[in-house]
Each structure stands twice: as structure tokens, then as C-alpha cells.
Design a protein around this nucleic acid. Structure first.
Length: 165
DNA sequence: TCCGTATTGAACT
DNA sequence: AGTTCAATACGGA
């Protein structure tokens, strides 16, 4: 018996993202991809009103961040990952808009100062980019580091918050 | 157990 | 200013 997952578009000025909700909250966000829209476009599921509410909140939060502002409200998150990854993601959410941290700083923040590379791994495994601001983590020397959605997106997101590389 | 990783800092050209 | 390299924690196979 599989628990239902609801896939819904998030329409923004930066393109159409895709959100996936479990019954516990927002589980995943995907960047707009050039060729999209054939599969999964129409799911003939009835969307419960609670999920629709989360969807509205998510879309608003996403738009806020794309505009460089801190969202007033976040949807509940249902992040699948190990304890270590969840700690990293929690630490990421404490970075405000327009601010950055290094992988090493995140490692120290979660009490594992030597786990710098593992922090990078956890960032890459982040299922909810943008809302969990993995793009605000740079390498220690000020270099850009990497990004699962592509470095262009990382640069764009940072630029929207007024951060210059 | 082995391998790759979105790192880091030091020691070298 | 660029390159190499070891240390290092974690997660997937």
C-alpha cells in the first residue's frame, strides 16, 4: 500500500518548477527542465484541500525567495534522508537571504567540523532546493562550489539575493 | 569493503 | 596564482 504522492507545478517568473507532496508535507522540488510536460502532466488524482493549501504556500515561498525575500510562511517539509543529512538541511535553513556560508561552517554548525566533504554530499542530496537554500553554501575560498541543479541556477539564485561571486 | 564526493588547507611550483 | 595532495565523514553498491 503506497501512500499517495501529489505532483503539482509551481509557476514562477523563472519557469515552471515541479513540487511533490506526500501526506506529511513537501517532499521534493524539481527545477524547470527544458523538455518537460509529457509524463506526469496530468495526474487524475483528487487533491485534498490540505495539500492544495501547502501547494499555495510553497508557490508563494518559492516566489519570495526568487525575489530575494525571506518567505513569510513555509509549508511543512517531509524530507527523506539520514539523520546526518537532516541536520545539514536544518543548518542550511538558518542561512538568511543574501547571506552565505562555507561547507566548513556548516560542518562546524552541526558539531562535525571535519565532515566538510560529507556536508557537500548532503547538500547534493537535498530534495528541496531553493526553499532549503543549498545555493547559499560556497567553498571556503569564496569559489562557487557545485550545485545539483547546475551552476547556472546557483549563480542566478545568488544574484537574485544580491550576492556577487 | 571500496569508491566517489557540491571540501579544505598546506605545501609546493 | 595555479597545482598537488593528504585527511576526512558519509552514503551507496
Amino acid at each position: 500500500m503506497k501512500t499517495p504522492v501529489y505532483e503539482m507545478p509551481l509557476v514562477t517568473s523563472a519557469g515552471k518548477f515541479t513540487a511533490r507532496f506526500s501526506e506529511r508535507g513537501l517532499a521534493e522540488i524539481n527545477f524547470p527542465s527544458a523538455r518537460r510536460h509529457a509524463a506526469g502532466a496530468s495526474e487524475f488524482k483528487i487533491i485534498p484541500s490540505g495539500i492544495r493549501q501547502w501547494h499555495r504556500t510553497t508557490e508563494m515561498a518559492l516566489k519570495s525567495i526568487l525575489a530575494g525575500r525571506e518567505p513569510k510562511k513555509f509549508p511543512p517539509l517531509d524530507l527523506a534522508g539520514t539523520e546526518f543529512q537532516k541536520k545539514v538541511w536544518r543548518a542550511l535553513r538558518k542561512i538568511g537571504p543574501g547571506r552565505t556560508k562555507s561547507y566548513g561552517e556548516i560542518a562546524r554548525a552541526i558539531g562535525k567540523p571535519k565532515a566538510v566533504r560529507a556536508v557537500g554530499g548532503a547538500c547534493g542530496a537535498n530534495p528541496v532546493p531553493v526553499l532549503v537554500p543549498c545555493h547559499r553554501v560556497l567553498a571556503a575560498n569564496g569559489k562557487i562550489g557545485g550545485f545539483s541543479g547546475g551552476l547556472d541556477w546557483k549563480r542566478d539564485l545568488l544574484a537574485r539575493e544580491g550576492i556577487k561571486i
